[in-house]
């Protein structure tokens, strides 16, 4: 019997949801655990950095990293894991494109630290304090995993949905690996999976989710909700739109979409209508589009570090 593959799962700057997402596999998780050897998984078993350091290079079959890179320690750890691993997988939206913590890039590091110290956070050890007390240094900006190390595969989602995790585990355990760079999700947008009808293809108003009880059968975009479905990979089963919530893009853009925010701007600008198109409608169209507050946060909720260079560059 061949040795069971060694797997590591590591959590950088994230919420922990990705680790919990494995539980969604249900009883199947037990089968998986039986087929692998856990080399390092701080959230699940008592393993230390020193355990990893002791391993031979490339002796871990696959490391799944979740979380954005925010601290110097995050960076050290992912470099260490890269050295010890055959494959590295960006697991979840944060590792993939920066995730929700990446929205912090709208502020400079100094602004963040000032805000946090107001809440009692100590950015550096107090005079005479122990060095070990000091939290790890904060990076100037949040980064995605691929900003630091070579990433072999991506399992997207916030957190990854069981079908997508299943695709990765199936590939790892069977050894039938896709080409490097593969994203374990669909190439087509999730509209393909969405049962809602799309007939009146125009945007005549912009509403936020709490402002509307949507028609259960009609496309949310056509009802004025900013649904990022058309620009987001399928594979999630269009879970949010099915439940009446617009897609916020956690699985990331389709392979040819380019920058998802700019693609959505182009699509929404194309669809917006305030009556007959023409100069007479310009002012009303502008008002309609003004209802889209915070386009940056709407379009890049999970991907700001991947796409947006902000004007805030005081410490870059």
């Amino acid at each position: 019997m061949p040795p069971r593959p060694r797997i590591a799962v590591y959590w950088t700057g994230g919420c922990g949801g990705c680790d919990v997402s494995f539980l969604e596999l249900g009883p199947a998780l037990l089968d998986v655990l039986a087929q692998i050897e856990i080399a390092f998984w701080p959230a699940l078993v008592d393993t230390k950095r020193s355990d990893v350091e002791a391993l031979a290079p490339r002796s871990i079959a696959a490391t799944l990293v979740n979380g954005t890179l925010r601290t110097e320690e995050n960076v050290e750890m992912v470099h260490l894991l890269r050295e010890k691993s055959e494959l590295v997988v960006a697991f979840g939206a944060c590792a993939y494109q920066g995730g929700v913590p990446g929205l912090a890039n709208l502020a400079t590091r100094d602004e963040i630290l000032r805000r946090m110290s107001g809440n009692g956070f100590r950015p550096s050890p107090p005079p005479g304090g122990e060095a070990e007390d000091a939290p790890p240094g904060l990076l100037p900006q949040a980064k995605s995993l691929a900003d630091e190390i070579t990433v072999d595969y991506v399992v997207p989602g916030c957190p990854p949905m069981p079908p997508l995790i299943g695709l990765l585990l199936g590939a790892l355990l069977s050894g039938d690996l896709p080409a490097p760079g593969h994203v374990f999700a669909h190439d087509k947008a999730l509209c393909e999976e969405c049962p809602r009808t799309r007939e009146e293809r125009k945007l005549t108003k912009v509403v936020r989710p709490h402002e509307l009880v949507p028609d259960p059968n009609v496309c949310l975009l056509d009802q004025g909700m900013i649904c990022l479905g058309p620009v987001t990979r399928g594979g999630c089963g269009a879970a949010c739109p099915k439940a009446g919530m617009p897609c916020t893009g956690c699985v990331g853009p389709t392979p040819n979409a380019g920058d998802p925010g700019l693609a959505m701007i182009s699509a929404l600008g194309s669809l917006a209508r305030a009556g007959e198109e023409g100069p007479g409608a310009f002012a009303a169209e502008d008002r309609l589009l003004d209802a889209l507050v915070d386009p940056l946060g709407t379009f890049y909720k999970y991907s700001l570090p991947a796409y947006v260079r902000t004007g805030k560059r005081s410490d870059r």
Binding site: E285, L289, P295
Partner: peptide, 11 residues
């Protein structure tokens, strides 16, 4: 184009 650029400028 006018509407797309209007949104783009907001972004």
């Amino acid at each position: 184009t006018r509407r797309r650029i209007y949104l783009l400028k907001k972004l």
